[in-house]
Design a binder for these strands. Structure first.
Length: 288
DNA sequence: AACACATTCAACCGCCTTGTG
DNA sequence: TCACAAGGCGGTTGAATGTGT
């Protein structure tokens, strides 16, 4: 069955339109929400005069009609934020989107799947763990020509390096971010990443550490393999005995082996981030 | 110009969580 | 405590569009 045919499975209704929204439908929904708000999404279609289900209206509003949405390509800063937060939270798109004002979870998810994932893979990084993939480790150490087969999409980022002293992720020889979507209008204010950019961990980390959803879940980070399954990024692979879970998860978080090197500057930065006032990101909630 | 293939992203699906009676 | 409805979210799909040959 085609998407634009009538009928809907989620709500069991049959006279519900599906598929792309027409400008008229958008106008109806926008007009209704801006004047009445949405106390109950299930009642919105009827009240707004739309043959859509409530879920569809909610999605359309959140992903497209909301007036605070940011349009255009993701900036380099946004991209880095996504990478940083994804490394910690995994595929928690809604949580990641909270750190990017004006962006939706759907947008972040699509950007990840269509762009960032490929970049990481082209660097030999596992997109789910952000660690160097075993095959890439071998090729890197043996300097063989076992490089990933170039895809049709040109690789944008090359030669990632890791600044172990600050646990910051650095990127060398990075070209300005360009959308992979060809011939689409590109944002006029696209930013350029300097050839050697070291993104400090503080801004993203402090907001993460303040996130109400972060603190209680240190030991249960989705998308992260248990510590004994983590592929260590650095040389030390010694087992860690008698270390608290939180310590282990700090290691997961920053990809440094437990009880090995610890940078005092990073330590103070991290502890200051931990001591910051609790100030959870608001959930972009809309009130009328 | 025509076709095949690749890519993007809006929208849907289905599961899980939360609120309410 | 349970059942139900509604909302929220991540995964997936497929139409639209771009690119290569």
């Amino acid at each position: 069955m085609k998407r634009d045919e009538m009928g809907h499975r989620c709500c069991g209704k049959h006279k519900v339109k599906r598929g792309l929204w027409s400008p008229e439908e958008d106008a109806k929904l926008l007009r209704y929400i801006t004047t009445h708000g949405h106390p109950s999404w299930s009642s919105v279609p009827k009240l707004a005069g739309l043959q859509r289900c409530g879920k569809s209206c909610r999605l359309r509003w959140i992903n497209y009609l909301r007036p605070d949405l940011k349009r255009g390509s993701f900036t380099a800063e946004e991209e880095q934020t996504i990478i940083d937060v994804h490394r910690i939270l995994g595929n928690k798109w809604a949580q990641i989107a909270k750190h990017l004002p004006g962006r939706t979870d759907n947008e972040v998810k699509n950007f990840w799947n269509s762009c960032i994932k490929k970049k990481l893979l082209s660097q030999g990084l596992d997109p789910s763990t952000h660690n160097l993939m075993p095959s890439h480790k071998r090729s890197a150490s043996s300097s063989s020509n076992n490089t990933p087969k170039p895809s049709k999409t040109k690789s944008i980022m090359t030669n990632p390096t890791f600044d172990q002293s600050t646990t910051a992720f650095s990127i060398t020889n990075v070209n300005p971010y360009t959308s992979n979507k060809p011939n689409k209008v590109k944002s006029p204010n696209q930013t350029t990443i300097p050839s050697q950019t070291v993104i400090p961990i503080d801004h993203t980390m402090s907001s993460l550490l303040n996130d109400e959803n972060m603190i209680p879940n240190w030991s249960n980070v989705d998308g992260m393999a248990p510590i004994h399954e983590q592929a260590p990024m650095f040389s030390s692979e010694k087992a860690v005995i008698g270390v608290e879970d939180d310590d282990l998860n700090m290691d997961i978080l920053f990809n440094t082996p437990s009880s090995s090197t610890f940078d005092p500057d990073f330590g103070s930065m991290f502890s200051s981030a931990m001591s910051m006032d609790f100030n959870p990101m608001d959930d972009l909630g809309w009130t009328f």
